[in-house]
Design a protein around this nucleic acid. Structure first.
Length: 275
DNA sequence: GCATTACCCTGAAAGC
DNA sequence: TGCTTTCAGGGTAATG
């Protein structure tokens, strides 16, 4: 499941391949993703345009194109963006929904569960798009300061785990890294956000940055579907302390890791180390 | 403002 | 072995 480190890894691997190249053709499967794919709009934005830059905001990938268009891509649960240079030798995998032909190579959007999204905007529309307008602060951006984070926590009475998953607050954290950051900070996922206090808030801020930075270094976490633009899996799954480890010993105290359900999502935590 | 539930979807795992 | 059921989860929307 692509969260911030996975999307960042895709952005980096794509950047090396795609920037400076021109899109020549667009093909789509015709099947809807989370929303219908507007092939005509995407073609108008991309075909004949050069890829000028690739950015990331939260879990969104931004392909900035010449002529002032931006292609916004969310990988959902199982989405992959694959850059394939030897097109003849590598057949398109099942669930290939969008293909950009790029100077003899292909950028393929593959998504078995079709929870992803691909949408084009004019650059001046982007900030007001429904996807980005409601997004909170990216935890690897300069705006993610301890003071901002503490104030945001103070303004929410939800469980801190729920708070962390809210993309309108912190943009880019998903279930894996929310669990890992809370473990690292020694904070119970059930603690109310506005009851962390300044010391825990500072610890959690630091833990979020740390957990994300380490995972970016390891090129993300591959559980099932995630690979980068070159088809390579990440390495962070070998370094998870609690996520997906129900019943296994906590790496700190050896107590069994527990699982609880918050907002219909599994939370993994150590009841002994996290208070 | 927040909790809960349903929905979209497929493949892996579990259960029989 | 092979079939059926359950579960996983990001984001959105409806409802309370």
């Amino acid at each position: 499941m692509p969260e911030l480190p996975e999307v960042e890894t895709v952005a980096r691997s794509l950047r090396a391949r795609l920037v400076g190249r021109t899109v020549e053709r667009l093909e789509t499967s015709g099947l809807p993703l989370r929303r219908p794919v507007d092939a005509a709009r995407i073609a108008a934005a991309t075909v004949g345009a050069r890829v000028e830059a690739i950015d990331r905001i939260g879990k969104y990938l931004l392909l900035r194109l010449s002529r002032g268009d931006v292609l916004l891509c969310h990988l959902g649960m199982s989405g992959r963006l694959l850059f394939v240079s030897n097109v003849q030798e590598v057949p398109r995998p099942p669930h290939t929904h969008v293909v950009f032909s790029v100077e003899g190579a292909e950028l393929r959007y593959v998504d078995a569960r079709r929870f992803g999204e691909l949408v084009a905007y004019k650059v001046q529309e982007l900030a007001h798009s429904p996807e980005l307008a409601a997004l909170g602060v990216d935890p690897l951006s300069d705006g993610f300061t301890p003071a901002w984070f503490a104030a945001a926590l103070d303004g929410s009475r939800r469980d801190v785990k729920q708070f962390l998953l809210d993309q309108g607050r912190v943009a880019g954290l998903g279930n894996i890294y929310a669990c890992e950051a809370l473990f690292r900070a020694g904070i119970s996922p059930r603690r109310r956000a506005d009851r962390l206090g300044p010391r825990r808030a500072a610890r959690l801020h630091e833990a979020i940055r740390e957990v994300l930075a380490r995972s970016v270094e390891r090129r993300g976490t591959t559980f099932r579907d995630y690979v980068d633009a070159d088809g390579e899996g990440g390495g962070n799954q070998h370094h998870l302390a609690v996520y997906g480890r129900e019943g296994e010993p906590c790496p700190t105290c050896a107590a069994p890791v527990r699982r609880l359900v918050q907002g219909a999502r599994s939370t993994f935590y150590c009841p002994h180390c996290q208070r």
